[in-house]
């Protein structure tokens, strides 16, 4: 059980702390998964509307989500807010390159449009009873495995 306790938390290794640690992330996931269903952003049809520019819905969802993220991250930086465990929240700049982002991003975009799903929505769709998406998940794990095998030969 102690393995679930991240080294970054100041919590002890008592059973309740581990349970609290686990419950926190499961609850955040449930919250997110519930909203994904209610916004229908995990719908293959909504993704089709988006890439055909036939509906504003997806752009509204993504745009307002990013806006809330931008403002809250700015507030955390501006007031140097700390995490509940007392640790400082810091942001690390990503590597400044272009190949991996444009090429890898395009490949993901192809998969996103074909399946109408990204990793989060895949989990929510399986939970929502569309169990065929287990195949999509397994194929995605295989894709990540394949990337890990050839990554030394790819531009980054």
């Amino acid at each position: 059980m102690t393995s679930a306790n991240a080294s970054t938390t100041s919590e002890g290794r008592s059973g309740t702390a581990v349970t609290g640690f686990a419950a926190r992330y499961v609850l955040i996931g449930m919250y997110f998964g519930f909203v994904l269903v209610k916004a229908e952003v995990l719908s293959w049809y909504r993704i089709q509307e988006m890439f055909r520019f036939h509906s504003f819905h997806m752009y509204g969802v993504l745009g307002s989500a990013i806006l809330v993220g931008l403002v809250t991250v700015w507030l955390i930086e501006r007031y140097q807010l700390k995490a509940v465990n007392g640790a400082a929240i810091t942001f690390t700049p990503k590597d400044r390159s272009w190949a991996r982002y444009l090429l890898g991003g395009s490949l993901f975009g192809l998969g996103w449009a074909l399946t109408g799903a990204c990793p989060g929505p895949i989990a929510a769709l399986i939970g929502a009873g569309l169990t065929g998406f287990t195949v999509v998940l397994l194929a995605a794990v295989a894709g990540t495995w394949a990337y890990g095998s050839v990554r030394g030969r790819l531009p980054h």
């Binding site: 993504l62 990503k94 991996r100 982002y101 090429l103 890898g104 991003g105 395009s106 490949l107 993901f108 975009g109 192809l110 998969g111 996103w112 074909l114 399946t115 799903a117 990204c118 990793p119 989060g120 895949i122 065929g132 998406f133 195949v135 999509v136 998940l137 397994l138 194929a139 995605a140 794990v141 295989a142 894709g143 990540t144 495995w145 394949a146 990337y147 890990g148 990554r151 790819l154 980054h156």
Partner: peptide
């Protein structure tokens, strides 16, 4: 093709790009 190729591209592409929509 949609499920297997699509899923494979999600897994390969996101790791290469270092992230997905989230």
């Amino acid at each position: 093709v949609v499920m297997v190729l699509g899923g494979f591209l999600i897994g390969f592409g996101t790791r290469w790009a270092g992230g997905c929509t989230s």
